[in-house]
């Protein structure tokens, strides 16, 4: 299991969560975890539980907020959504990440 899976880099999970919430609207923890798995095409070795500390971290910074609500199957679950600050921060984090990814890509291109 997991031989071709990448570990999640520190800090990238936060951005994945933010992007997921932007694309899907309010969503519970399980939904976020599933969405991340689907988008990454199961290429990440990520325990679903790992997203809860990340969700808490984002809440503490005020980037997302949580509310209890009902799932499609009428189960009580906590739904997370982006705040205004969260949206702004996400833009900035996205730029950061793109810069790093761009730099990395240039290094990889040189060694070819």
């Amino acid at each position: 299991m997991g031989e071709n899976k990448s570990d999640v880099l520190q800090g990238t999970l936060d951005l994945m969560v933010l992007k997921t919430l932007e694309a899907m609207g309010p969503l519970h923890g399980y939904g976020i975890a599933r969405r991340i798995e689907q988008v990454s095409d199961n290429g990440l070795s990520l325990n679903q539980g790992t997203i809860y500390p990340a969700l808490l971290r984002l809440q503490q910074r005020g980037w997302i907020k949580a509310e209890w609500g009902l799932s499609e199957t009428k189960r009580r679950a906590k739904f997370y959504s982006l705040t205004r600050i969260g949206r702004k921060q996400m833009t900035q984090e996205t730029e950061n990440w793109e810069r790093i990814a761009g730099t990395m890509a240039r290094f990889l291109a040189v060694s070819d």
């Binding site: 539980g49 799932s71 009580r76 679950a77």
Partner: peptide, 29 residues
């Protein structure tokens, strides 16, 4: 937020338990 969590830690523990339970249930369904 961390300071506030100290005061309400029992309630937050229940919250977390329920959230994790909901996660497992949703996944099971």
């Amino acid at each position: 937020s961390r300071c506030a969590a100290l005061i309400r830690s029992d309630r937050l523990d229940e919250d977390l338990d329920e959230e994790v339970r909901a996660h497992i249930d949703l996944a099971t369904e």
